[in-house]
Write a protein that binds this DNA or RNA. Sequence first.
DNA 1: TATGAATGAGCATTCATTCAT
DNA 2: CATGAATGAATGCTCATTCAT
Lengths: 213, 213, 213, 213
Amino acid sequence: MVRKPQQSRSKITVDAIIEAGFICMVERGMEGTTTRHIAETAGISVGSLYEYFKNKEAIYAAMGRYYTDEVLMMLKSLAPSLMAADLQQALEIIFYEFSSLLQRDNQRYLKCMRYVGAMEYEQYVDKMEQGLMELIMRYVMHHPQYLQLPNIPTIIYVCINSGIFPIIRHLILPNPNISFDDMIKGVTRMIISYVNAELAESAKNNAQQKTTP
Amino acid sequence: MVRKPQQSRSKITVDAIIEAGFICMVERGMEGTTTRHIAETAGISVGSLYEYFKNKEAIYAAMGRYYTDEVLMMLKSLAPSLMAADLQQALEIIFYEFSSLLQRDNQRYLKCMRYVGAMEYEQYVDKMEQGLMELIMRYVMHHPQYLQLPNIPTIIYVCINSGIFPIIRHLILPNPNISFDDMIKGVTRMIISYVNAELAESAKNNAQQKTTP
Amino acid sequence: MVRKPQQSRSKITVDAIIEAGFICMVERGMEGTTTRHIAETAGISVGSLYEYFKNKEAIYAAMGRYYTDEVLMMLKSLAPSLMAADLQQALEIIFYEFSSLLQRDNQRYLKCMRYVGAMEYEQYVDKMEQGLMELIMRYVMHHPQYLQLPNIPTIIYVCINSGIFPIIRHLILPNPNISFDDMIKGVTRMIISYVNAELAESAKNNAQQKTTP
Amino acid sequence: MVRKPQQSRSKITVDAIIEAGFICMVERGMEGTTTRHIAETAGISVGSLYEYFKNKEAIYAAMGRYYTDEVLMMLKSLAPSLMAADLQQALEIIFYEFSSLLQRDNQRYLKCMRYVGAMEYEQYVDKMEQGLMELIMRYVMHHPQYLQLPNIPTIIYVCINSGIFPIIRHLILPNPNISFDDMIKGVTRMIISYVNAELAESAKNNAQQKTTP
DNA sequence: TATGAATGAGCATTCATTCAT
DNA sequence: CATGAATGAATGCTCATTCAT
């Protein structure tokens, strides 16, 4: 039996550093996290840290990439069941999976979201959005009725952002007047209403176009 | 008519410091902003800075309050025209006014939003949310058809967050495929569809209840 | 009836500042005392403080003079009763009066003694020592048997310092093994033994001198 | 025979910092001594200083311990010759050794004594007093006639403090009328007179007790 | 390749002192 | 005379980064 090639020594250390970065972020916040802490947590020396990362910034960048990859992997693994689901089910699956990803490991990624503003996070958002977009397009292909939708890019953009941010917001700062589940339900209903309304309008316009000429 | 006495020297300096804080935030980001920079920008000495603010933290807090007050004032001044408007107009007014507030003075407030995570921003969010809530409730009173809506708190929460965050997001990181106006249009349509759908369902349920017994 | 001439406005303020200096010293220690605190406590502005004293140093100097004067006044007022007392009584009077002076007003002077090292205290010590010396010489005149003592300056120096410092030390850092009263009693006995021993030796030498020639 | 490994690099640096602390204290007094000065004098950077000491306070504490240890070592090394000496010799040995310790290295320790009031010096005093106490008890054991002394703790306390402080006082502020040697002689004679007087009284009391019953 | 001691620029903050009003 | 806002040098301390071993 052939062993899988072991992760290289180097890869292991890099991962340990990234992991340590997340742990420090959770335990002490961004302001309280120093390179020393990260190195200690990773079980290496500060010197070694700089062997693997040019500077602190680079560690944060790697953490961002790591997070992005996790999201993309999650989307990929979700794809099959999403394809088979109706819109409501699909949305709920995504929302709950995403929120559970954010909360994994002591809310590791959620805690980091507080500080995304301080980083150049355009790159990560881009990649994640692209992944979502792809997934949604595949979903539309599997459910051709949505092909009638006008301005698909706009609709997708609006749905993604109106879906994701309220979730993050509620996880960071829960509102006592409204439970997380209710919020998810609300957001889902909103998106479905929107899509249905656009579909209905599109249908009406099409009918008109056929009648008018 | 007697003029109001000029702003006291003290008030002027405090304002100058807050203004300087925003300017530094715009020019150098949060990490790059030091008390020295703020003092210099405000045209005073470091020593004086500490005459007016206990510490750096206190300056950020004052900036937060200042921003919050601006938002509340904007909402207040908008109230009359909103009451007279239909839902779509009302939403568009709010969204555009808010986005222009965020972009005022070299995107001063927008740039600060990047760092809200690093502060204790619960207090500001609370006050702003409360202001919005009040306004919405007044709107509902003026437009009694919306009183039929079930789960009003949930609906309001979802609409606020699904409306505001996509705007902030697009201002910070515009999407080349979607213009700002299209996004606003989309969000507005989504909210209206949502509200209408909820209204319709509520009407149906009411009808059923009357028929069934 | 003729009023006593009031203290001049200026003298009153100077005294208030010195008083404030002592109060701050008691309440916050030397490190914690700022010119602002002193001015506030004195009920005047910082600006005025500098009208009356060249700088902080000058305030401490004035406090030192004030303390010295108090000691000298105490010695003066004690003189009559001391002259009438025997050595043991005289010593105990001085020791108890001195220790109560140090502890007056929340141990004002005792607290200051902790910091004398930081000041140029030569001048104050000189004046106090001179006052004591004078008093002791008067005592000797009233009690001629002590004129027999050899090396009077040395004996006085030793008695003063061996008497005063242990008192200060015990007041600052009381020793649980030995009460203040026991310590005073011990010091008094020691000095008396010393003086008697020197007297005895002196007498013996004198006798020898008379016999020998 | 194998040489002991050299002092570790770390121990050397720590010692250099303590040494630098004393030098700065001598050259610029407590107020004038900054962490920067200490670091410079020690030939290291401020950063390194804080590798070895948590803060400035900790440096002063180490200096205090260092001084205390020197005193204890001195007492230890003196013990054999003291045991063999009579009381007068023993006292003079201690007084001269102590005064030469205080004056070592540009009066390093003497200069520091000026500021002990500003520190929490109870701990150091405790250890030193304990060392002295032990030594004196051993002396008493070797010279059993002193076991007759009543109130031994009081006598020891008084002798220690009446012996030490006048020495410190004269070293800091010499009295032009009294030479250092004369002062030592005086203090020694005083202590001996005191001890002899107490012994005599104790003997008398014992005699009385035997006769009276 | 790994280490961790060393660096020093930089930060927030204080406070004695000045001076325009 | 009195005020207190303004000053800015100075302080203790941190931490990302380097480099000799």
